[in-house]
Design a protein around this nucleic acid. Sequence first.
DNA 1: TTAAATATTCTTTTT
DNA 2: GAATATTTAA
Length: 750
Amino acid sequence: MDYLKGLNPPQREAVEHTEGPLMIIAGAGSGKTRVLTMRIAHLIHAKGVDPFQILALTFTNKAASEMKHRIEKLIGLEARNTWMGTFHSTFAKILRVESHLLGYPSNFSIYDTDDSKSLIKAIVKEMKLDDKVYKPSTVLSRISGAKNRLISWEAYLGNADLRNEDALAMKPLMGEIYKTYQKRLFKSGAMDFDDLLFNTNVLFRDHLDVLNKYQQRFRYVMVDEFQDTNLSQYLITKKLAAVHQNICVVGDDAQSIYAFRGADIQNILNFERDYPDLFVVKLEQNYRSTKNIVQAANSIIAKNKAQLKKEVWTQNHHGEQIELIKASSDNEEGKLVATTIFEEKNNKKLNNADFAVLYRTNSQSRAIEEALRKMNITYKIVGGLSFYQRKEIKDLMAYMRYVVNKDDEEAFKRIINFPKRGIGDSTVEKMIVAAYEHDIPLWEVILNANSFLGGRAANAVDDFATMIKSFGIEVERKDAYEAANTIAKQSGLLKELYEDKTIEGLNRYENVQELLNAIKEYVDSPENEDKSLGAFLQEIALLTDNDRDKDTSDAVTLMTIHSSKGLEFKQVFVVGMEEDLFPSQMMMQSREDLEEERRLFYVATTRAMEKLYLTYALTRYRFGRLLNCEPSRFLEEVDPATIRVNKRMSTALSGALRNESVEPRSGFIGIKGPQVRPMTTAKVHSPSPDFKPSNTNNLKEGMLVEHPKFGYGKVLRIEIEGLNRKATIQFENFGEKTLLLSFAKLRIID
DNA sequence: TTAAATATTCTTTTT
DNA sequence: GAATATTTAA
């Protein structure tokens, strides 16, 4: 095969080893995607495997479609029949076909994180629990963690260890919430993201004939980004490959950055145990980056204890050194990034698209955006507040979802009184209570509003029911686009938005139009056979913002490090290299957490091909407050031979900024709507030198203390919450604050 | 019931 | 700073 010629020996080995279990350990920039696509092409072309029998699982839709295109380029349209997709979309498709076996309707809704949180919030409220203790996000991540380890609510309630953990965390009813949550999902005919995988496992466990069907169908199974699989995903692939044993996984333990989502590096180690005749290939030559960048990345990851042996090297030139840029504030950081991009573009004749700015948290994009806009540099933001999370989009989608699945409680709550039709919270509550008391679906209550509600409310609900019924007929008779159009118009949604002539209102209107366009595109595409609204909804539920077509015009890319995985740019800025921001303070509970942050840093640095910049700011606005920052410990961990300190903050600028940070800020900031919010009037305290993290036991009530930012204060009380010790302190200038003692830096005065 | 005013909370990453 | 929650007025 001539297409094998460009491969180095280990790459070639990986492509040609088609039978039996194979693990490819692929270092950053080692041509992983190339090997994977070649391997699939090789299977089809050289081995005569039917594309229909190949399953390739990825973590993002983007990665899947990218691979599909590359294979099509290699071997033509034949490749269309390979099944490529994310874990979630692939098994959602299978579940649509088989869901009746689990008692779910085939048009089940898929709840996104917002829906799940909203449901949990409702449950916590109904159980009359404190929503400060049982925060929806905390509860959801606990439930999600259980599901990812295949622990059902029954098993959860019966598990002494888990219950003990909950009791220690002062959240003893976690299991009860899990149970109710699951029952409510079932009643709503809905699955959350984790259920898609969990229920696939249940399906394969309880229906061996179904499992066998898919085992026969998928003779070759491939998993990309294997280091990011959780137990639930691992077991699915293991079951699928059990008959033919043709399983190929590709991963890099150094790039595992999704532990918070249940990803388990252990899967890589287990893999060797599960398949004794496993063939392992290591791809260690980096084709992407300069020697300096590879050396720097290696020096960081070497600090980690938990890792597989691997030596990434490159034949590329040394290239330029890494540039360390120090700024006095996040705004100046933005300016320095923008001016550097401007200069480099001119000096080296580069395009905007050759640059990427990577950050740890989405909120850091603001300052960078402002600076780029001022310098007239086109940029695009990947991720962040997703298109599909916008209120107007969720509203229209909720209408569509509800028409397709009338049990969907979350969709119902969204649309019942939007646009306003005189059905208030109390009416909604009455209906939900009625549904529970009589143990009937909510839709029954709506159809018989007269028997449950007073005249005025009943009439409004009747109108609502008539509208939904007419939409139902529409959906049955017409394709997704026509149905969606009717729904948008007749629900009053479009009218509501059209009448809003503010800039945001226009934007919202355009967004809805964009969604309608997307539906039109879906209907017009010959690839989609089923053109019903239901089919479109299942397609879209698992899309993320990163999958949407962005205008391909030349733009600088701004994104989080997490969403940068798999991409490469000539020049990369990693911004916000400050202690507590990166590594993230929230994340750092243990050594393992620090190691994951380090892997994140490794991922960030290895995106760069020619030049890498690390930038940090000494002060940064967070939560509307100006905070002092220290440089990240990671800056010290990078091999100093690869770094050069070049840019300095200009004296004029730093002077101005110093003023900004020292001057007492008072008065008013931007007027937004009617709410005029006064800025903090407190003086910025100039701290004394020696502050220590005060996780000491010698802090007592009544003591006087000094805090580097809040100044002097008196300890009012100390409380112990779970494993945390907190102190409430009355500060002279800032009022009462409650600080977590393990983090707060205090100096005890007496 | 609804809209506006005011208060509070949340700031980690994603399918 | 922005999103959400709660209170108040109409």
